[in-house]
Structure formats: C-alpha cells, structure tokens
C-alpha cells in the first residue's frame, strides 16, 4: 500500500496508464479551481465526504496522507461530472470493456469452432478417447470447466481494473 501520494508500483506490462491521466487531470483541475474561485463559487462542497467517512473500509495507514484533499476532490469531480471525471470514467469503462470483449471472443471462437471442426474433419466425429466419443467429451464435459476458467479469469481481471481505478482515485 502507499504511504501517501501516488502509488509507484508498475501496474503490469502497460505501465501505469492512470499516472499520466491523473497528472493531466490535476492540471486541468487546478485551472478549473482557479477559474471557480474567481467566480465566487466554491466547488469544494463534498457531499461524499461524510459517505467516505462512514464507509466500512479498514485500511492501515502508516503515515498521514499528504494530499487527502485530493481524494475527496477527485471523487467530487467524478460525481459532479467535470471533464476530468468524465475522462476517468471513460478510461475505466474502456478497460473493462476490452477485458470483457477479449474473453467473449475467446468463448465464441472456441464454441463456434466446434461445429465447423466436425463438419470439416468428419473423422473427429467418430474418434474415441477411453471408449467415449470425442464430441461427447467435448460438448458434454470439457466445455463446463472451460466456462468456469473464463469466468475466473474475468473476475480476476475486472477486480484488478477496479482496484487500480480506486487506488488512483484515492491516492
């Protein structure tokens, strides 16, 4: 876990896509805040602050967070739908969608290939393994663990995406 400030650990082969985003977001937010303070509005009403305090999360904090205002501000930006918040949401949605589409494609290709395989290679239809027909073993047995594997892989990936996003927002 981080000791305050941004998390430095690399997030996989893509590097840290959030870091660049947040940097840009901070700059844009700074500009906006300056503009707002000029117009007299205070955008720093944080309806979420109380909710954050009451959320049942337990975290061990080893040092005082230097930029706690940033946490709440980023969440407020998400909620108030500033252009910053919107960019962050779009990115999250895109990352999650790519993951889902990848795994869906895998499933569809694997399932869709089976009838074609039997059509093109008829001998597959009569092959037996341990006395049981191959088509039966594939469609009656093997697909189910395959589905569970796809699901497990998705859950892991989706949780990780969400964790990255949450950490980015909170840091």
């Amino acid at each position: 876990m981080s000791f305050g400030g941004m998390s430095d650990d690399a997030n996989g082969p893509d590097g840290d896509p959030w870091a660049a985003l947040v940097k840009a977001a901070e700059e844009a937010a700074a500009k906006e805040q300056a503009a707002q303070q000029q117009s007299g509005q205070d955008s720093t009403i944080y309806p979420l602050a109380s909710r954050i305090k009451s959320a049942k999360r337990e975290r061990i904090v080893l040092a005082q967070r230097r930029n706690s205002r940033r946490v709440v501000r980023t969440l407020a930006e998400l909620e108030d739908q500033t252009s910053v918040g919107e960019v962050l949401v779009r990115q999250l949605v895109r990352v999650q969608l790519m993951l889902s589409l990848r795994l869906m494609l895998l499933t569809v290709v694997v399932l869709g290939a089976i009838p074609v395989a039997f059509l093109l290679v008829p001998s597959l239809g009569t092959t037996t393994i341990l006395g049981l027909g191959l088509p039966w073993l594939l469609l009656g047995l093997a697909v189910y663990p395959f589905f569970v594997a796809v699901a497990w892989s998705y859950n892991r990936g989706a949780e990780r995406n969400e964790q990255d996003f949450a950490e980015m927002v909170e840091n």
Partner: peptide, 15 residues
C-alpha cells in the same frame, strides 16, 4: 456519465 460511473465504479468507492 454519472450513470455510467455508478454502473462501473468499484464498490468500495460507495458510488
């Protein structure tokens, strides 16, 4: 955007 945020944001952000 707010709706999509609600749908996709991680649960622990409480949104």
């Amino acid at each position: 955007s707010r709706i999509l945020l609600r749908l996709h944001a991680p649960d622990r952000l409480g949104l």
